[in-house]
Design a protein around this nucleic acid. Structure first.
Lengths: 224, 224, 224, 224
DNA sequence: TATGAATGAGCCTTCATTCAT
DNA sequence: TATGAATGAAGGCTCATTCAT
């Protein structure tokens, strides 16, 4: 059996097992059983249980990174919202294709060790920063009104994550891909979008979150 | 030392240790060291390591549940968006006050056992259903346009979770509470809000997510 | 509460608990619960769990010893077999009155530590020696034919023990005391064979135990 | 090292350790030290400390059962007393060959858990029932006079057990096997009384166990 | 390269005993 | 004398990793 082939088989088995049981509950025994190899063989291809896990996560994070393109603004480029939509679509497609990795990433990749945590944090930071830059660009163009783009970016990121978790882990009813992308984009963008119509919207939006000075809800009584 | 006092001390120590290292990396040895008690004393108050963890999570979930009030619609009630804002405010305040529990809940409470997973899932389901009902109510009033309220609710929930994770775990710069609540509400509501001003907004929104028939983006470029 | 009274209460509780669960499965917690005293109180009266157990056993062994009288031969004395019968009767009565102690002695008093084992061994040795001396006296009088009186004594002792175990632990149907004593004495003194056919059997039996020189049974085929 | 070989080595070590210290005082540490294996190796072959112990006992009980043959009556069969003698001989030989198992069985196998207790009790019940059937057969043939065959069977069983205990645990002087078997058989079948004086004694003995119909001893004077 | 028996550090838990009140 | 919270030694068991074949 070709070396690379065997190695991949271990990765595949590990992915299934980790997704099913999480990092700690998954034992090397489970993995070699799934991969139908001997104990020692496992360590011929991977240094440790942690190493397989890390490789799975690293590979997948790389794929996710690759599926996200930085927004480019220019006459020849697609309009920003289309670029954003394409990113959403690719990311959701990737996660949909690899539900095991979605589970692993969302539920089991945290808190294993400093190194892994750092890498994961870095990844989400990158994603968030990408979104943030897009929002800031939007602000510069007068399309985005929200000031705290860092928070907004995290919220958008979190919305994506939770929807994926809902669909893959919670067993939510599968959605049509295009429609799902649209819905997410709408929820996301209509929240931050703004523009020349802002004035018209104000009557609707302003009563909402006490944006205005004369709004006197002191928030008192809201604490538990 | 009063019995309840000592028990609380163990809970406090456990909270710190679990937040710092996660459930598995945290040993009973760590907890009793933090609590400065003997090994046996720990088991005087808790049946097992799992039991302390569960109690921490259960208590906190209960507090979170209590901090969320179902939206009531009526003349004497506050307007829905204010009720929603109050919920956001209370939840964020609670999580802000107990950052350790936020860490535990968001990063370490998954995948420990079926029972715990079920409880956690149930909790998030409840929160999501609450939001969903609110959205559906909004739709009935013509305020909310998005159809897939289930997805929208999950997205909102995820936004909240991720922002909390960002602020407590990723070490994001702390925000002013009121402003944070406002921002989250804006991101959330402007995404789902709709109403009489919709027509005016269409020129801005319609090019976005291929809502219109004549929109010809075939989804090309979505492939990964 | 008088000191002795309280102490006795602990002993009583311990007896019940030890008989029910055995030495190891019985915890100090069980005993104090049964005695309805506090943990510390237990140690006011006894040095250790082992100490209570030892005291129970020692007391009972003493009682057993007291119930056994050495056989006296003389004109004014009862005939030996009556003295033996009386001993059997008293021992069985005592064990019957304290089934818990019978259980403890027969099933749970072995192998706890060197010291206790020695005492127990000593006790059984004494009992066996008493029987042995009786048998030897019988031999001197030509009443007892068996040569290995040590083995015979142990066999008799074992018969007694097993019958008691059967009646108290195995839940054997209770017997009428007098009849039981008689039966045990008969089995012991005359064996199980009897009846009008006894004389006829003698020719069959006598070659049995290779008492005779001309006995040619090679015993071949009996080994496994 | 062959798998079965290592497993047997663990069993051997465990047998020695359990016989020496009893079940509770024996630790897995003791066993692996005796077997000169690592901690984990022990659990490679046995599920638990209890499991090794049970296997030892179960195996030995099975061997004992196999060494006992039901008595068969018929022209071609050996006479019953020879069959009985053969059984005694085989059982004693087996116990003599495995003194550790004798110790374990007699002193340490009680009271560990319900399941084990049940099995042990069952074993002794089987042995006792075997003896009982033999006695009943004897009664039918007019060879056995004792009525309470259940008690008699237990007494015989107990005699055997105690003699084995004496020889293996109490450190009794080893006996010649054939002679020992004979002696036990004699004690069992004919009791300890014998000799030319037997006939003379009959008038003395017979009033004892109320064998005779016309015997009117009311049991007076026997009470303790 | 492949195997799987062997290893041993480490963890959770129990429970007899102590001690401050 | 009585209490019961606190103690900590000790033991059973798991499982990632190693190594001889």
């Amino acid at each position: 059996m070709r070396r690379g082939h065997r190695r991949q088989a271990v990765l595949d088995a590990a992915r299934v097992v980790f997704a099913e049981r999480g990092y700690h509950a998954a034992s090397v025994a489970n993995i070699i059983e799934e991969a139908r190899i001997a104990r020692g063989t496992f360590y011929l291809y991977f240094e440790s249980k942690r190493a397989v896990f890390s490789e799975l996560v690293d590979q997948f994070l790389a794929a996710l990174r690759n599926s996200v393109k930085g927004l480019k603004i220019g006459r020849e480029e697609n309009p920003p919202h289309e670029q954003l939509r394409a990113n959403f679509s690719r990311v959701l497609a990737l996660l949909g294709e690899e539900p095991e990795m979605a589970v692993i990433l969302l539920d089991h990749a945290h808190g294993l060790d400093e190194e892994s945590d750092r890498k994961l944090l870095e990844f989400y930071d990158q994603m968030a920063h990408g979104l943030e830059r897009a929002l800031e660009a939007g602000r510069a163009l007068g399309l985005v009104s929200i000031e705290d783009t860092e928070i907004a970016a995290r919220a958008v990121l979190g919305g994506l994550k939770e929807v994926v978790r809902f669909l893959t882990i919670h067993g939510g009813e599968p959605r049509d891909h295009e429609r799902l992308v649209d819905d997410l984009l709408r929820v996301t963008l209509r929240g931050v979008l703004d523009g020349p119509m802002k004035q018209l919207l104000e009557p609707v939006l302003s009563p909402l979150p006490s944006l205005d000075v004369e709004d006197e809800e002191t928030g008192a009584g809201d604490e538990r």
